[in-house]
Design a protein around this nucleic acid. Structure first.
Lengths: 137, 137
DNA sequence: CTTGACCTTGTACCTGGCTACAGGGTGTAG
DNA sequence: CTACACCCTGTAGCCAGGTACAAGGTCAAG
């Protein structure tokens, strides 16, 4: 029961069945072992990978970047220092994304506050104070 | 000096000049006023918008979603309750993204820790413990 | 021993988000 | 008054990330 077909993997991973083949071609999923008749055989681990990919995409990572993220866990034969360095770089990327999302959230929260108040219809400054934190360390 | 041409807006917004026209077509930038000779006239506000769009994209929002985000600030003639409700929905989306990014960061941090230790080469479980928080409230 | 729902491969197509022309007008510097 | 760097419109092309066949093989249920 830890043996999944492509269709089952697609269902459990919540993606189109052809997407599985596409990810395999793109190197995001490892070439799976095959049954005697040539059917691909996937595992629960693959389900995890597919979900990871979808989630990472929703966060603005490209398939290329996601492949790099996944590679971090795959290659334990690489120098640990190298893996660590790349992981740290990804963490920095993520921190930046979180920071920007927080600023965005702040602005929306202000908007909500403005719309809850009484006064005249709100000026709704979503964009305001949202740009100087560009490359500002 | 608050009058920008398309080229200047593109430079200040850090996008390709044709992208400006594209955003206008897609309704992400309002139809700008024109000079006597037909040149588009933009403002600093437009620079803010362009940057907002780029940043939101990096965070995984589609142009369609970004248009909705921007619409929140544009239409103060809509019922405040309605605007507020949509803003709150967006905030929920953003919170979800932040949550997922944090989980991702956690896993990478664990990886870094593992790679810094001595022991045998790390098993590197980036994906582990990363799936049950799917729709789990 | 056939039907139906799966699987295989290869290849073509689609959508989103740009990006690049072609063919022409504008505007300021020398 | 001509260069040159900009602007205009329309339309075509490009890349990423899928999706959709067609033509055929597999397998469990009846």
């Amino acid at each position: 029961m830890n043996q999944l077909t492509r269709g089952e993997l697609a269902r459990q991973g919540q993606v189109h069945i052809e997407t599985i083949r596409y990810y395999e071609r793109r190197g995001l999923l490892p070439k799976p072992p095959r049954s005697h008749s040539g059917y691909r055989i996937f595992s629960r681990e693959d389900v995890r990978r597919v979900r990871f990919i979808k989630r990472a995409q929703e966060l603005g990572f490209s398939l290329k970047e996601i492949k790099e993220l996944l590679a971090l866990q795959i290659e334990p034969h690489t120098s640990r220092a190298a893996v660590r360095q790349r992981a740290e770089a990804k963490i920095a990327d993520i921190d930046q994304k979180i920071k920007t999302l927080r600023a965005m959230r702040e602005n929306l929260a202000r908007l909500v506050a403005a719309c809850s108040g009484r006064g005249p219809i709100c000026g709704c400054p979503i964009l305001r104070g949202f740009e100087q934190e560009e490359e500002a360390e």
